[in-house]
């Protein structure tokens, strides 16, 4: 199984593989620039463990873990 965004440790860069949320959410994420091939990084986790904050295309976006778990990624080799 492919790792998902929710599995990424903080600070790890990865490239989006596919998005499998419901249609309107997938569409929203894609329109905000989260597309297959886009490079993302998990910046931090909220104090209570959820949601998580992502960094992509020069801005920050937070999503809930449940949603991040449906976004498959391929982690980049550690720097």
């Amino acid at each position: 199984m492919k790792p998902s965004l929710a599995d990424l440790p903080v600070g790890q860069h990865a490239a989006i593989e596919s998005i499998d949320c419901d249609r309107s959410l997938s569409r929203r994420l894609m329109e905000m620039g989260l597309l297959p091939g886009t490079r993302v990084r998990v910046v931090r986790v909220a104090p209570l463990g959820d949601p998580i904050e992502l960094r992509l295309r020069n801005y920050s976006l937070s999503v809930r873990r449940a949603e991040a778990a449906r976004i498959a990624v391929s982690p980049e080799a550690a720097e």
Binding site: R28, M32, Y59, V63, R64
Partner: peptide, 11 residues
């Protein structure tokens, strides 16, 4: 309806 999704830009 669907629970509110939380996709929020952090400016």
């Amino acid at each position: 309806g669907p629970a509110p999704t939380f996709v929020l830009e952090m400016p």
